[in-house]
């Protein structure tokens, strides 16, 4: 499949030590319909990588291309319209829930797709939420879901999700996963998500990018990665997570 988004030797140096890499050059691609889980221990630069893909952060080396056109030839706003990043701690914009949901239509002078917004809100368990409520007064989980709907209404080609279910209870998490999956299937968009929940990564994604030791150590088919990871670091990582999962289940 033709790649949508290509990463060419993309690297980032540590923020506080410009001599060391946060992650070493990454060359990879995201194709239409891909669902990629970015996994790895904390501090490997997963969020930074996603922010770079959304051009909210600048890489120190390398470049990207979208639809075969180099990032330099894209206007940043046009790029971000196609590659949308949803933060782990989403920020509600001033105003009501409705104002937040209408942000995309306001920014891009498009008609507000109220039925779609209602549909997503329902799928995410927010069907009864009063749209006239001040967005700042929502709970963390509600904010995370409203921010997700905001992003879905943009209809990006690549949706970047940074721990998008971190503040959700198991029931809401399932709803959010289903909503994203269905949206991606219908819109043929690619999804790149960061998750510390290996079961979620396995459920949702077909490809895994495993980051460790300051580099993209494995980029593999999800089934193969979870069954038999190639590197020792990945095996140890999955073992640790399996242990944590068991502890949680006790």
């Amino acid at each position: 499949m033709t790649p949508l988004l290509e990463l060419h030797q993309l690297a980032k140096l540590q923020f506080d030590n410009r001599e060391e890499y946060l992650f070493r050059p990454i060359t990879s691609k995201v194709a239409q319909g891909d669902r990629i889980a970015v996994i790895g221990a904390s501090g490997q630069g997963k969020s930074t990588l996603l922010r770079i893909l959304a051009r909210l952060e600048r890489p120190d080396e390398g470049y990207m291309s979208l639809d075969g056109v180099s990032d330099k030839d894209w206007k940043p706003a046009q790029w971000r319209k196609k590659v949308c990043y949803t933060a782990q701690h989403p920020v509600m914009l001033p105003g009501t829930v409705e104002d937040n949901l209408q942000t995309v239509s306001r920014l891009h002078s498009l008609p507000f797709d109220a039925p779609a917004a209602k549909g997503y809100m329902g799928q995410l368990g927010l069907g009864d939420l009063d749209w006239k409520k001040e967005a700042s007064s929502l709970s963390g989980g509600e904010k995370q879901r409203v921010a997700l709907v905001r992003s879905l209404l943009l209809q990006p080609d690549v949706l970047l999700l940074d721990e998008f279910t971190a503040s959700l209870d198991p029931g809401s998490r399932e709803g959010a996963e289903l909503c994203v999956r269905q949206w991606a299937d219908t819109s043929k968009a690619a999804v790149v998500l960061i998750s510390h929940d290996m079961e979620q990564a396995e459920r949702m994604c077909s490809v895994v990018w495993f980051m460790a030791g300051g580099e993209l150590l494995e980029a593999a088919d999800a089934g193969r990665f979870f069954a038999a990871p190639e590197t020792e670091a990945a095996r140890q990582f999955l073992k640790r997570h399996a242990g944590e999962g068991e502890t949680k289940n006790v």
């Binding site: 909210l56 940043p76 971000r80 196609k82 949308c84 933060a87 920020v91 914009l93 920014l107």
Partner: peptide, 20 residues
């Protein structure tokens, strides 16, 4: 900064993100 970034992430131009 969070608000500006939220706007930018939704495809806003610098002008739109900074306007409020």
């Amino acid at each position: 900064r969070g608000e500006m970034e939220a706007y930018l992430a939704l495809g806003a131009t610098v002008r739109q993100a900074l306007a409020p």
